[in-house]
Each structure stands twice: as structure tokens, then as C-alpha cells.
């Protein structure tokens, strides 16, 4: 698999179809994001563990908007790029996507239901993770028990903002969570449930299922499960998967005629 990615990267760079390719590299015995340019050795190329490519691509485009970029993108990266483009954060016209399907093991580790990009260049489509024990358990809980579950989970929160920082779709220039009038500043754990509910609402039409919020949580809070529930609910209401269709606006900004609420029509 990795050889095929290597070949695609070399082709893009050598042919001049891309000025640089954003991928991962193994350096100092660790895996990191890396911007490959023509002539770079691709021996270091790596695929896993994944890093979120969207925000890095955004920072590169901001520094040099006319650069012809390519990016090795997994399903979640692919959806993040679409969603970022839709929201004016990046310009996909200048970007070529090398679509990489995740392996079954990788999908399991991420608890990912859709472990493949829209167009697969490398790898084979495998089934996603439909549900987990925790998701089933949470669905079965009463409201009071759920509240206790999340209260206990978020009692560990040290307000690192890692979930927000790592999220490819947290794109507000001024973050309401840092505004003392909304979330009292300087408190650990941050006030419950406002901090986490506001974030959940903001991500309800944006979450692309990358799991980076949980991956970056130093307190092991099961955010992937929280957002899996939210994505399902959003989809049930609006038949909408963030990052799936570049031409479709978020139902939260359209009228009822354009995008009706599903429960009603059913």
C-alpha cells in the first residue's frame, strides 16, 4: 500500500502537477506530518498513526495561496477537506486528493463508521464500525444516568482545549469557549455542561468523524462516542452527513422547503 502512495507522490511531484505533497513521515523514530517537495527522498513516508491534514493544509494555503498542493487523505481527512472548502476555509481547486482507504484494524482503532474517502486511490474499502459497547450502553441509559455518566467523564477535563484545537472543523476565529461571559475563565474542570454542550452544538453539522478530539484528550474522555451519537441524530433529522457532498449546504442555514426535518416528513 505504502509503495503505491509513494509512487503517486513521486508522479505528482516529478510531473509538476503538484508543487508539494502533504503526507506523513517517519523522522526521529516518530511519525509526523511532512510537506514533501520535488527531490525529497520518500523513504521516510509513513501512513499511520494518522494526523489531521485539513488544518495543516489550511495553514499552508494561508501562507501561499497559489501553491499547487496534493494531500494523502483518509476518509475523515477527505470529509474535513470538503467541509472546510464548503465553509470558505480552504480552496480545493488547487488541491489534489490522494484518497487512502483505512484498513480494518485502523477503522476499529478509530471506531470509525466510514473509513474511506469518496474516491479511493489506494487500499480497499472495508466495513466501518457500526456500533460499540459504549454506544449501546449510552443509548440504553435514562437521561439521569446519562447526565451522571457525562458529568463524571467531564469532571476529569483539564480545559486543555485539545478537543477544540485538534478538531479540523473548529474554525471560529474567536472561540466562544474562551469568552468569560459564556464559560467562566480559569476554572478546572470547566463548568459543566456548558463548555461541552456548546462545542457539541457547534460541531453538530460539522463533525466528520475523525476522532481527533478523543485522540488529543489527555484525560481519556470518550468524545468519539459523544460525537457518534450526535452525528447519528443529525443524520436522522436532516439526512445529512458533514463532508459528504460539497454542493450541499448545512441544513441549519437553509429553509424548511430546501431541507425539511426528516421526522416530520416520515
Amino acid at each position: 500500500m505504502i509503495d503505491k502512495v509513494r509512487q503517486l507522490v513521486v508522479d505528482l511531484l516529478d510531473s509538476g502537477r503538484a508543487d508539494a505533497v502533504l503526507a506523513l513521515a517517519n523522522v526521529h523514530a516518530n511519525v509526523q506530518p511532512y510537506l514533501y517537495k520535488k527531490g525529497d527522498s520518500l523513504d521516510s513516508l509513513a501512513l499511520w498513526p494518522k494526523y489531521s491534514m485539513g488544518p495543516i493544509l489550511k495553514s499552508i494555503q494561508a501562507a501561499q495561496p497559489d501553491m499547487k498542493l496534493a494531500v494523502v487523505a483518509r476518509g475523515c481527512d477527505d470529509r474535513a477537506l470538503v467541509e472546510l472548502a464548503k465553509r470558505g476555509q480552504i480552496d480545493l481547486n488547487n488541491v489534489q486528493i490522494i484518497g487512502l482507504a483505512c484498513t480494518a484494524d485502523e477503522a476499529t482503532e478509530c471506531e470509525c463508521a466510514n473509513p474511506y474517502p469518496a474516491n479511493i486511490d489506494v487500499g480497499n474499502k472495508v466495513d466501518g464500525v457500526a456500533s460499540t459497547d459504549l454506544l449501546a450502553e449510552l443509548k440504553g441509559k435514562s437521561y439521569d444516568d446519562r447526565l451522571i455518566f457525562w458529568k463524571q467523564a467531564f469532571d476529569k477535563c483539564i480545559k486543555c482545549y485539545g478537543c477544540r484545537n485538534a478538531c479540523p472543523l473548529c474554525i471560529c476565529e474567536e472561540c466562544i469557549l474562551e469568552d468569560d461571559s459564556w464559560v467562566k475563565a480559569g476554572e478546572i474542570p470547566p463548568p459543566f455542561p456548558i463548555f461541552h454542550l456548546i462545542r457539541a452544538y457547534h460541531l453538530s453539522d460539522k463533525c466528520v468523524e475523525c476522532g481527533e478530539c478523543q485522540n488529543s484528550c489527555p484525560m481519556d474522555i470518550p468524545l468519539t462516542s459523544l460525537y457518534a451519537l450526535i452525528r447519528n441524530e443529525f443524520n436522522e433529522l436532516f439526512d445529512y452527513i458533514p463532508g459528504a457532498e460539497i454542493d450541499r449546504k448545512s441544513p441549519l442555514v437553509t429553509s424548511l422547503e430546501e431541507d425539511p426535518i426528516r421526522e416530520e416528513t416520515a
Binding site: 449510552l138 441509559k141 437521561y143 439521569d144 444516568d145 446519562r146 447526565l147 451522571i148 455518566f149 457525562w150 458529568k151 455542561p193 461541552h196 454542550l197 457539541a200 452544538y201 453538530s204 453539522d205 459523544l226 451519537l229 450526535i230 441524530e233 443529525f234 433529522l237 436532516f238 441544513p251 441549519l252 424548511l256 431541507d259 426535518i261 421526522e263
Partner: peptide
């Protein structure tokens, strides 16, 4: 629309 999803979020969090 917003309050449809908000209601769901509240329920998910246990409110």
C-alpha cells in the same frame, strides 16, 4: 431546525 438538533443534544448529554 436548530431547536430540533438542540433537543437531541440535550437528551444525549442527559438533560
Amino acid at each position: 431546525k436548530r431547536f430540533a438538533i438542540l433537543a437531541k443534544l440535550l437528551g444525549t448529554m442527559g438533560i
